[in-house]
Every structure is written in structure tokens, then in C-alpha cells.
């Protein structure tokens, strides 16, 4: 299962109003490291489906949201909870490193 996409248009409804923690994976087609990290995120999402949602946002198609959150490097993985950014992770990392970054949300 791969993560669903969110857009500028539905960001508020999907992410900011989400009732559980939700991680947004800011990515682009031309970004090699984004492709590397994407299957790892899918596995984390699958293994923790009851605790955290993981969605993707294409920064080329949705510049407004990317700009609003000041994205300057991708992959950028921001965890939102109650409409606010609670955690920022930048750059592709191995699964154990991502899991430890996300520990507070996976516990």
C-alpha cells in the first residue's frame, strides 16, 4: 500500500483537521532520495496504522503549502498534530533512524 496524496486544496481538511498524528512527506518527481525513502515510509505507515497517518505532498504541484511551511530541502517529513507542526525530519534516513525520530508518535 502506498501513501495517498494530499494537495494545496485539501491540505486543511486532510492534514490540519486530522484527528490523529499525520506525517506529510514533501517530495518531487526529480528527487532521488525521495524515491529511496518512500517505501520505508510506506512500511512505517503499515506497521503503525493505528497511531499515525502518512501522506505525500508533491511540492511542484502544490507550491503554496510547500512555501507556507518553508520547505527548502526534500524529502522533508513533517508530523502534524492538532493542526500544528510537531516534528520536522529532513533528508532520507534508514528505517531505524526514522523510527527513533518518530518514537513519540509510535509509542
Amino acid at each position: 500500500m502506498s501513501a495517498r496524496n494530499v494537495t494545496d486544496a485539501d491540505f486543511e481538511a486532510e492534514v490540519l483537521k486530522s484527528d490523529k498524528p499525520i506525517m506529510v512527506d514533501f517530495w518531487a518527481e526529480w528527487c532521488g532520495p525521495c524515491k529511496a525513502v518512500s517505501p520505508i515510509l510506506d512500511r512505517i505507515a503499515e506497521e503503525n496504522a493505528d497511531k499515525i497517518d502518512i501522506v505525500k505532498l508533491n511540492v511542484d504541484d502544490n507550491p503554496e503549502t510547500a512555501m507556507k511551511y518553508g520547505i527548502t530541502s526534500i524529502p522533508a517529513m513533517y508530523v502534524f498534530s492538532d493542526g500544528e507542526v510537531k516534528k520536522r525530519i529532513i533528508g532520507a534516513k534508514p528505517k531505524p533512524a526514522l523510527e527513533s525520530d518518530l518514537a513519540e508518535f509510535l509509542a
Partner: peptide
């Protein structure tokens, strides 16, 4: 600040500037 403006890869991050 790496990832928040400091970068090692213009082709990766340039488009954000």
C-alpha cells in the same frame, strides 16, 4: 540549519530558492 537553508546539493534543493 541543514535542510533549513544549508544544503550540499543545488540540483536537489535549488528550486526552492
Amino acid at each position: 540549519l541543514s535542510g533549513y537553508g544549508v544544503s550540499w546539493c543545488a540540483t536537489c534543493d535549488g528550486a526552492f530558492f
